[in-house]
Nucleic acid binder design. Structure first.
Lengths: 246, 246
DNA sequence: CGCCGGTTTGAGTCCATTCAAGAGGAGTGG
DNA sequence: CCACTCCTCTTGAATGGACTCAAACCGGCG
């Protein structure tokens, strides 16, 4: 296991807080175990008391809840570089499920080690806090998306978000990428039904806003899609590397 | 201005991290300015670059966004003891609006002072991070609420949430409290329209799940409402005082 | 008293859902 | 190589929950 396994984490934290050599070392030295996990496996279940957080090294995962009538709500999609489960593991009892979409590689990091590091290296703690604040920003946008946009705008919006995030993570281009979600999963992430997602995607295509093949999305005119999807990247708080906030 | 103005903040942070005397002092010593703000005033607007966070001392405020077609999405309701605007002020550019619902007293704390404190007293920083994680948990539940529950369940759920939070903040009882929101605001917090909120509240009343007067809510049988509203308090991560996580 | 914001009610409409069935692809096993 | 299964995607028709539009009601307040 190379010592640089956790370097995506360092990269991410550096966006927020200028870490000196010792601090970077401390992050890289976090105890962890890398595992390959199949698709559609649970990493954490609601009500669990998880002892580890995980850093996504490859693949995709979702955060979701099952409500009373059995239907599912997806609140986030995680990809390479994202730290999932800070929410769950730090707060003690998991309030949502984390499930892989595809085969993934994840680095499991003990909860206690993260807390100790945050106390020992406050600037690292600050950066992790910032990362959580960005998660919050994304949740708020999803709330707005689900509650106040129609189906077509809503789907356009999530397509824009994925495009930017995938591009930022080096997994594709915003104008052409592989979408690792079924229409049913898209439905659960947008508060729609799979049938209506299907019809709305077709409508987006008919309007010339996107092109589709099996699981890939193409965007001919990004600006036009952004406009139609009521999308603005501000809420993602994407930052250029090597330009920490402080 | 008494030195104990910020004590609600100490109380809140203590839930997560056992702070020693010096750390408590450091929190209380945060520079701040207390102001009385009228109802329906903006504390922060989207796109602002706020320089302060604010601790709510009394009254109510909401976080909201206006989407492309002009409609509004409320993502959170803040009350006494809540720190609003960490999200906005720490990340630089505000991604949502914060607006008072009622007359409020707020303590404005400079963003830089909070960041400095988090670095100087890492356990305080950790506690603030935890508080942000709880916010995230609430956002996820709201996403589930808005996307996958019908109107009646959705409203019942938010009524349960407010009951518990108000009781926890010492502002009423879960079975009888003043609700500081109009039906239009409830609509924007649940992804419904004001008209449908009205009809659904009446239906909740007709089913004997709640009683209403002008702006107050009564719950005759809490357990029955919880059940009908698919409510479980887990996501609020309410903790007993004097029992820090570590 | 008249205004105003909020609540209530009715009637008609529509966006998204439900139900149902067929088509396309990938994987499995005989 | 084909039959079979399973999952996802696609399409049609009918339904319904929530919306829109509109008007009346109500209490507080200048």
């Amino acid at each position: 296991m190379p010592v640089s396994t956790l370097s995506p984490l360092v990269r991410k934290l550096q966006l927020w807080s200028a870490l000196d050599g010792a601090e970077q070392e401390a992050v890289l030295a976090l105890p962890h175990k890398v595992e390959r996990v199949d698709g559609s496996k649970y990493l954490v279940r609601e009500d669990d008391k998880p002892t580890h957080s995980c850093l996504m090294l490859s693949g995709f995962a979702i955060c979701h809840k099952i409500v009373g009538d059995g239907s599912r709500s997806i609140s986030a999609v995680q990809m390479k570089g994202d730290v999932v489960d800070l929410q769950n593991s730090l707060l003690g009892v998991a309030d949502h499920n984390v499930q892989t979409l595809t085969q993934t590689e994840v680095a499991f990091i003990p909860r206690q080690a993260i807390m100790d590091l945050a106390v020992r290296c406050p600037k690292v703690g600050l950066a992790m806090w910032y990362d959580t604040l960005v998660d919050g920003s994304m949740f708020r946008e999803w709330i707005a998306n689900i509650s106040r946009r129609d189906a077509i705008t809503r789907l356009g919006h999530i397509i824009c978000e994925f495009g930017l995030r995938l591009e930022y993570a080096g997994l594709g281009s915003r104008t052409s990428y592989e979408l690792p979600m079924t229409q049913e999963q898209l439905a659960d992430a947008t508060g729609l039904t799979a049938v209506h997602v299907n019809r709305s995607l077709k409508e987006l295509e008919a309007r010339g806003l996107i092109t589709r093949t099996v699981r890939s999305v193409g965007v001919a005119d990004w600006d036009r899609l952004e406009k139609a999807a009521d999308f603005s990247a501000r809420y993602l708080h994407l930052r250029e590397p090597n330009n920490p906030l402080q």
